[in-house]
Amino acid sequence: MAMLEAVGLRKAYGDFVALHGLDLAIEPGEVFCLLGANGAGKTTTIQLFLGFIEPTAGAVRINGLDVATHGLETKKHIAYIPENVMLYPNLTGIENLAFFTRLAGRGDLDDAALRATLVEAGLQPEAADRPVGGYSKGMRQKVGVAMAIAKGATALLLDEPTSGLDPKGSNEFSNLLVRLRERGVAILMATHDLFRSKEVGTRVGIMKHGRLVACMATNDLSHVDLERIYLEHMHD
């Protein structure tokens, strides 16, 4: 069964249609990269999966549960990493992680386990006890990944998680995604990064004006092919 599923998903704001009937299914162990210009509907799709906004028509399902009717249950399966993982600046990295992890229902993880998760996500051990207010963006994204790992999420919703990261940070982040993919996590990632999409993604989809205009597996593609197809679709 698909972990993340959109069926005839439509979102309209008055006369403006942000999403025209999207159909999408992502299996465990799959990384689906959503490409497209700003305003193409990528973030809208992710926010519909999160239940932050309600669909005009169609449905989103997580692990078979409809988000509209089982909003809170579906949250047990997912982790969300936005472009900027936002944390409480007055609290330390470990305090932030402990807070969000316990809220997500993992009260069983002790301090040592949480610290280990932060290290697994690539944060230097000594940074854990510093207030997050002084973290770089890359460090905050790592706390975001640690939150996903600690929660034991089986589906990941990522909204341009690497934009603004330097190549090293971006590379580290990609490696983490690959490891999660190998554990069987289903990942939906909105991104502008064609290169990473090819590296990390198992499939890529190109969105334009609220429609999924192309969808292909990455192992059939070269970097050059992907860029060519992408640019073709961007021509009006």
Binding site: L72, E73, Y80, M86
Partner: peptide
Amino acid sequence: ERGTLRQLAATGVR
């Protein structure tokens, strides 16, 4: 404003 509400909502807290 800080964006932490989205993070909170994603945890499934009531």
